[in-house]
Nucleic acid binder design. Sequence first.
DNA 1: CGGCATCCGAGTAGATACTG
DNA 2: CAGTATCTACTCGGATGCCG
Lengths: 149, 149
Amino acid sequence: MFKLLLSIIMETITENQKLRVAKKLKKMFGHMDRRQMDHCPIRDVMALATDKWSILIILYLGYYPVMRFNYIKKRVLGISNKVLSERLKVLEADGYVSRKLYPEVPIRVEYALTDFGHSYLNKLIDLTEWVTQYSDVIIQSRKSIKASL
Amino acid sequence: MFKLLLSIIMETITENQKLRVAKKLKKMFGHMDRRQMDHCPIRDVMALATDKWSILIILYLGYYPVMRFNYIKKRVLGISNKVLSERLKVLEADGYVSRKLYPEVPIRVEYALTDFGHSYLNKLIDLTEWVTQYSDVIIQSRKSIKASL
DNA sequence: CGGCATCCGAGTAGATACTG
DNA sequence: CAGTATCTACTCGGATGCCG
């Protein structure tokens, strides 16, 4: 019944939109043969930047133009040193963030989004806007189903 | 140096765009207080539908309007029974896919995207288009950095 | 301050076998 | 056919301690 609610609340997806999507998918799937799917580049790239920590890190870096290690750690609640440094390394390797080291004493390191990172941030914000719009309904729906099990 | 390449190849992000993003972020962060971040709804919802299997499942369900269990399993290479049924259950619970059971012998179950799922698929396709556009460069960049370690 | 090395525990994925 | 059950293996996250 919550699914009913969902479809009522949300703007209706027109058949036209579905067709447009189908067309794009066809193009995508056409270019992807079966063997490629194994090491699917989409998934490969997505997986590195959509995990729960990276999303928050990138959003924060969009909000605060430059951040230092412990500053990020303070903002991103619950992240450990290890995971943070690991994530930052991956994000740097993939070109999302830049890392600038100032060899002072004590040492200072500043992280910032690259232009590429900003481009990604754009997409990410689209998604988060969509999510925040529906997250309440999703969570409600989730609970009601769990309760009925 | 690959980062240089990145910024040359990609369309440049204008300062205006950055400002627009900053504005949106400000709004977002304004609405999120610190305690909320703990069980951040954005992350919470995203995490369930952006993992490596769910993305493929949803893309395939967008391509083939209805699919049966073993059909999905054949398409989504490498997924196990357990993980597939688990993912489908989660996706159903969150309202992305519908599950229709036909009590025939042998039993038949058909999965399809809900309207909500299609709405998400839209966003997902935006992202995958962006990713495919840059994935080659990202992977190159990744390798060159790894090689230099 | 920034972050790497190490260890440990928990959760998760995968393979296989089995059932309504 | 559409899953569940069970077991194992392995990865991943968290805590701690150390170093430049």
